[in-house]
């Protein structure tokens, strides 16, 4: 009797598992189709950066890369084609992963890495977010080592064909159903609209000052793994003899890294960049053309269209002078 019950349970469990696997594959197949048929939005940008980008200038970084560099302006002034592979919320490990895959396909003339000192701080989310590489792992095995940063069992989880699209459903649905209302990117560049106001900046200064007092006693050093990713990024460029510019783009305050207790990480970026002869380090965080200019910022972290166009012009002139 007892054995019959166990066998009955096991048979039903096996049958249910088969149904589940079938449904998972079906849904996974549909999501894959939708994902790789995206024509707008950040998924399509990532797919393009990974599989197709062959421009002379490749830009890497996080949201500040996506929002601050206009390839049209840079191309117009420098005479070189340009693509912005940055992605919102992603940091140096992601930049290194995308750079590695890009360089295996194409060697650009120049690489721009937009980096913020925050990226070298201790923050496990920068690794968790590497899960956005999951849809590409089937085609690009090089990404497996990066997704292992998300969790130890990440490669095994890929047995599920739906899992690579985890947390993407809303964006996929939005970009597919309302593609007309989704803002089109200009070679990966997506400027932010709107402008900050003076009271907003004053309020921000006040909050940052309070915050700085609170976090001043934190003496955490830069995270070794993140530093290694930065070095790996620069090593990859150096190995391929690619001129590289490591850029800290403008901030609304001229002492943002001091208030955020990140001067150590900022100096470390400069020091590491200085170890490579092919690398130029540019820090615009104290540039008076941007500091305390709310009309050039959409929010406290990002330039708006006006600010990013002005900044892109400055960068393009630097490129023209250096190349």
């Amino acid at each position: 009797m007892k054995n019959n019950l166990v066998i009955r349970f096991l048979i039903r469990l096996a049958a249910f598992s088969l149904v589940l696997i079938a449904v998972d594959r079906l849904v996974g197949f549909a999501l894959k189709k939708i994902y790789f048929n995206q024509r707008v939005g950040q998924f399509s940008q990532t797919t393009y950066a990974i599989d197709s980008a062959r421009q002379d200038i490749m830009i890497f970084g996080s949201s500040r890369a996506v929002r601050h560099y206009s390839p049209t302006i840079i191309s117009g002034i420098s005479g070189l084609s340009c693509y912005d592979s940055g992605r919102d919320g992603l940091m140096i490990p992601y930049s290194t992963a995308i750079e590695e895959i890009s360089l295996s396909r194409h060697i650009p003339k120049l690489i721009l890495l937009d980096i913020s000192p925050r990226e070298l701080g201790i923050d496990k989310t920068k690794y968790e977010k590497l899960s956005i590489l999951l849809p590409y792992c089937e085609e690009h095995q090089q990404f497996i080592k990066y997704i292992k940063e998300v969790s130890r069992y990440e490669p095994e989880k890929l047995f599920s064909k739906t899992y690579p699209y985890n947390s993407s459903a809303f964006i996929l649905a939005n970009n597919s159903l309302f593609s007309k209302s989704v803002e089109k990117d200009d070679n990966g560049y997506l400027p932010l609209r709107g402008a900050m106001t003076k009271p907003e900046v004053e309020d921000y200064i006040k909050r940052m000052t309070v915050r700085s007092k609170r976090i001043r006693q934190n003496t955490e050093l830069a995270e070794a793994k993140a530093v290694n990713y930065l070095k790996q990024f620069l090593d990859n460029a150096a190995k391929n003899k690619i001129k590289t510019m490591v850029i800290i783009s403008p901030t609304i305050l001229n002492n943002a890294f001091y208030l955020d207790n990140q001067t150590l990480e900022r100096d470390l970026i400069e020091k590491i960049a200085g170890e490579y002869p092919n690398v130029t380090f540019l820090d615009f965080s104290t540039d008076p053309r941007f500091n305390y200019h709310p009309e050039k910022f959409a929010d406290v972290f990002h330039l708006n269209k006006q600010g990013s166009e002005e900044f892109s012009t400055i960068i393009a002139q630097q490129i023209k002078a250096n190349l």
């Binding site: 149904v19 589940l20 599920s160 739906t162």
Partner: peptide
């Protein structure tokens, strides 16, 4: 409903 719940977890769950 069971398969739907499991798939919902896979699609919308946070695994870290």
């Amino acid at each position: 409903s069971l398969a739907f719940t499991i798939l919902w977890i896979i699609v919308f769950g946070v695994f870290n």
